[in-house]
Computed example of a mutant assay.
Amino acid sequence: MQTANGEHAASGAPIGNDVTADIAIRQAINLAVDRDTLVEVALQGYGRPAFGPADGLPWSSSDEHLAAPDLAQAEAILDAAGWRLGDDGLRYKEGLPARFRLTYPSNDTTRQLLAEVSAHMVRPLGIEMQPTGRHWDEIQREALHQDAIMFGFGSHSPQEIYYLFHSQHAGNGFYNSGFYANPQVDAHLDNAQAAASIEQANREWQAAQWDGTTGYGVRGDSSWAWLVNLEHIYFADTCLDVGELGVAPHGHGWPVTANLLEWRWTCD
């Protein structure tokens, strides 16, 4: 959530969070989270660290990553931004505690574990993320534009980048639920949409992530804290040849059966 508290969406849902609206909080969280450990603990090794919504795809920058977690740098960022440690171990800025809900769908044990482990990782900074399980109906009604949400995204199309980060799509369902807005990012996204070639478009998609000055990614606004990319696991009969599988996007975006016509039974 990058918008301050105090407004409401057309649906009536509250908008804004004064804690996560501070870029220092978002940068510190991104620096503190140990993504390799999240993969091992929450995914049992079946995945890899994530730093953006399209890691490894042509419309994502190959330079978009963070090195090992750096708590010292995260603490320095918080100190410089005026977030001071209180006697209770929590940081405060002008009386505001660095505390907010990290909401996940209550029927998703993987997201629950990711929420709990990542909350444990940032607590030494003096930031209290409160893992909170809710039904999607309740999330949409009360938390979608106010809490930090444990989302899952991933697509074979760069159009998802446009929906996630263009200010035009602020509050558009699950897309840009944090009401993120950056005019330079909007310009790059619009240029990508209007590009005359795929190569030119990809340069603009990547520039929206970071153009050397600003961007939605970890080197810019740190608009999200991307955590992990799941490695989808399937059980299959040893006699079934499923052919060459492509990059697996988010679960409801492209099923394992997408290349069903290539499947072959290899046993007599």
Rank of each mutant, 00 (worst) to 15 (best):
D237V: 10
T103W: 10
P14H: 02
A208D: 00
I23M: 03
H166N: 14
F235Y: 15
V117P: 01
H250D: 09
M150N: 05
T214H: 14
K93W: 05
P53Q: 01
P124N: 06
A201D: 08
L164G: 02
H135T: 13
A67M: 08
D186F: 04
D186I: 04
D241T: 06
D137V: 13
I233D: 09
A24Y: 03
W83R: 06
D22C: 05
I161H: 03
P158D: 02
W83A: 08
A42V: 02
P183F: 11
V122K: 04
A170I: 06
R111F: 10
D268E: 15
H250V: 04
E244F: 10
Y162V: 11
F174H: 12
T110A: 13
W254T: 09
F174D: 13
A258S: 11
R26L: 13
S197N: 08
S60H: 07
Q184Y: 05
H120R: 08
V39A: 04
F153E: 01
L57P: 01
E142W: 14
M129Q: 04
V41W: 03
Q140D: 07
C239Q: 06
E244N: 12
V247N: 12
V256C: 13
K93R: 15
L144G: 08
W59T: 01
N107V: 12
W263F: 15
G154Q: 03
R134T: 11
V228N: 05
E64R: 09
E40S: 14
P105I: 10
P158F: 01
G12K: 00
D70Y: 04
Y180Q: 00
A187G: 06
I127P: 05
T238A: 14
E244G: 12
A98K: 03
P124R: 05
P14L: 03
G126N: 06
G56W: 00
Y162C: 03
Q2D: 10
Y234R: 12
D34H: 04
H145V: 10
A192Y: 02
A208I: 00
Q146A: 15
F165C: 07
F100K: 03
Q140W: 05
A98F: 11
T20Y: 06
M150Q: 07
M129N: 02
Q209C: 13
A4Q: 09
A187L: 10
R111M: 09
H188E: 07
G152C: 07
L96V: 14
M121G: 04
L230K: 14
Q209E: 15
I198G: 03
T132L: 12
I127W: 00
S60F: 07
P124S: 03
S106V: 15
S222E: 05
D147M: 10
A9H: 14
A72T: 10
L261N: 13
G220E: 01
L43T: 00
K93E: 07
V39N: 01
I23G: 05
R203T: 15
L227S: 11
